[in-house]
Simulated assay, not measured.
Amino acid sequence: MTAEDPTHPDLLQRWNATLLAARAGREGPDPAPYGHNLLARWAEPQRAYHTVDHLRAVLDRVDELVDQGGEGGELELVRLAAWFHDAVYRPDRSENEERSAALAEKALTEAGLTGHEVREVARLVRLTVTHDPAPGDLNGETLCDADLAILATDPDTYRGYAEAVRTEYAFVPDEAFREGRAAVLRQLLSLPRLFRTPYGAAAWEERARENLERELRELTGAS
């Protein structure tokens, strides 16, 4: 979406369709105000990577996983979790996922989802703290793979992602940032698999590890 069109009507349409599909014909309030609120959150000035573009990318990767033989799960709830997973984002705070999950619980209850549906969306949002879904957690595997897909982009795109993350943490001194970022990279590399869906593992795993290892070498000065 161009800078001249800050309302992102295509995303709002996707939000409306997702919420209505999740509600499955049940009565409820107009989805649009909730979508506008979320889009405003994703456009907050403290964001450089966790922006509307990231939201759009995660939604697109969910669709890609489905198109490539997604193994089931409650896909509309996964899409709702994508909308909420970074809806609250302050780089200087550690409870963003918890606050985003709480926002989802409040908003989706008001919007007419059932208790199960609300709990599942909130669970998925909280799962993005670790990106480590349990085996057989189809919803969690899809959301986490879609969220981590940025790691498997080409080197220039990945470098832009890493630079945007650094911009969000501009208040952190260089040495402290390098140490913290290196810890995050090591945690990801320690996972037996970054991507849990068959398609994600086949299409994204190798390149993602190459990107992570390259960034870690650059941060630590390792050869």
Rank of each mutant, 00 (worst) to 15 (best):
R41N: 02
A57M: 07
V66L: 11
D86I: 04
L39W: 06
L77D: 03
R126V: 14
H54V: 07
H85Q: 15
G72D: 03
E98F: 08
E117L: 10
L38A: 09
W83Y: 12
A122P: 02
F84N: 02
T114Q: 10
A102C: 07
L65W: 00
G115Y: 05
A102H: 13
L75I: 14
A107I: 07
V118C: 12
L55H: 04
L80S: 03
E105A: 14
Y34K: 08
F84W: 13
D67K: 03
T128S: 14
F84L: 09
E110N: 10
L39T: 02
L108E: 07
L55W: 00
G69M: 07
A48G: 06
E71Q: 15
H116C: 06
R47C: 04
L103R: 14
H54W: 06
G35K: 14
T128W: 05
R90I: 05
R56V: 00
G69I: 00
D53W: 06
H116D: 11
L127M: 15
H54L: 09
P91M: 11
V121T: 12
L127Q: 15
H54I: 09
D86V: 01
E120G: 08
A81I: 04
R47V: 04
L59I: 01
V118P: 05
A104D: 03
V121E: 10
A107Y: 13
Y34T: 07
L59W: 00
R61A: 02
H50F: 03
H36V: 14
P45C: 08
L103S: 14
E74M: 11
L127Y: 05
L65Y: 01
V118R: 11
Q46C: 09
T128H: 08
H36M: 08
R56E: 05
G35H: 09
F84T: 07
D86K: 02
Y49P: 04
G35E: 06
E97A: 13
V88Q: 14
L75W: 01
A104W: 04
H50K: 10
H54P: 01
N37E: 12
E44C: 08
A81V: 03
L103Q: 15
P45D: 10
E117H: 15
E64D: 03
T51P: 01
